[in-house]
Simulated scan of single mutants.
Amino acid sequence: MARGDLTDQEWALIGLLLPPEHGRWARPAGENRRFLNGMLYVLRVGCPWRDMHERYGKWNSVYVRFRRWVEQGGDALLQTLVDLGLTDNWQHMVDSIVSPCPFTGYGRKRGAHSEAFGRSRGGFTSKIHARCDTQGRPLGFVLTGGQVSDYKATDALMKLSVPTPKAMLADRSYDSDSFRLDLLLRGILPVIPSRKGRSTPQNTDWRRYKDRNRIERMFNKLKQMRRIATRYDKTVLSFISFLNLAAARLWIKPLVNATQRSRN
């Protein structure tokens, strides 16, 4: 087993959750572990598919399996792990980070906006909007251009198929009357500091707000995977599928630990 590959305990948990293989040219499902480890290698190292290590087999076979899973539903694995993980609904958090895009030529092609490319102070970038639970475990993502304001992605984040929390933690960039009202109508307490210069500052539970660093730590873990730290994928579907795969990787270890504790 190479560094970064799934352990036997992790594979026992995740192996049955992968999409089944059908069709005349489908390879045996028993090879899913090798293929998935190849995808995790590309995710962690950030290399082109052609430079994937040979121990995972032919790069094209792994790429084709990746694309097939993406087309069958790239977020299905993460959603299943979230459902199995008994998400902590005491409080959720939303935040965003910017992922630079080295291929500036995308900006001169049609459809750049639909593929979540945009220009910001950091150059040609994409913005990753995320929602996580109180343990800092990712629940879902939304992609936009890097120049898009944070609160414009809140509608999509709130529509994620997850239970309703008691409170929502966010920084000042999410301080808008419409977002606060939407949270209150859902029965969620907004824990959001007021923007500087706000005419009517809102009260903030600062003791609770201290927990918001957990989503920052989640982003730090995600950005250790080089395919996330820098966006190399042209299509939004491929990039968000890598995001979901990275998020699933963060879910697997705590679920394995919880399973082992329940058996002891």
Rank of each mutant, 00 (worst) to 15 (best):
residue 107 G to F: 14
residue 62 V to Y: 09
residue 154 T to S: 15
residue 105 G to R: 02
residue 144 T to H: 13
residue 169 L to P: 06
residue 234 K to Q: 05
residue 202 Q to G: 02
residue 139 L to F: 08
residue 147 Q to M: 05
residue 113 H to R: 14
residue 87 T to C: 05
residue 253 K to L: 13
residue 22 H to C: 09
residue 226 R to Y: 00
residue 130 A to F: 08
residue 159 K to S: 10
residue 81 L to A: 01
residue 246 A to W: 02
residue 33 R to F: 03
residue 139 L to H: 04
residue 206 W to D: 01
residue 102 P to D: 04
residue 251 W to A: 08
residue 122 G to C: 14
residue 91 Q to F: 15
residue 257 N to I: 08
residue 210 K to M: 03
residue 122 G to N: 15
residue 36 L to H: 07
residue 181 L to R: 12
residue 97 I to H: 05
residue 172 R to E: 12
residue 160 L to D: 14
residue 247 A to R: 07
residue 261 R to Y: 01
residue 29 A to Q: 13
residue 149 S to I: 03
residue 101 C to L: 12
residue 161 S to E: 07
residue 30 G to I: 03
residue 181 L to G: 04
residue 87 T to I: 13
residue 8 D to P: 08
residue 237 L to Q: 07
residue 237 L to D: 10
residue 186 R to C: 00
residue 162 V to W: 07
residue 134 T to C: 07
residue 94 V to Q: 06
residue 113 H to G: 05
residue 231 R to V: 13
residue 199 S to L: 06
residue 175 D to T: 09
residue 106 Y to T: 14
residue 154 T to I: 11
residue 14 I to T: 04
residue 237 L to M: 09
residue 215 I to G: 04
residue 77 L to D: 15
residue 227 R to D: 06
residue 139 L to V: 08
residue 225 M to N: 11
residue 244 N to F: 10
residue 100 P to N: 14
residue 119 R to S: 09
residue 2 A to K: 12
residue 119 R to E: 10
residue 243 L to M: 14
residue 202 Q to K: 05
residue 253 K to C: 09
residue 55 R to L: 09
residue 61 S to A: 12
residue 119 R to P: 10
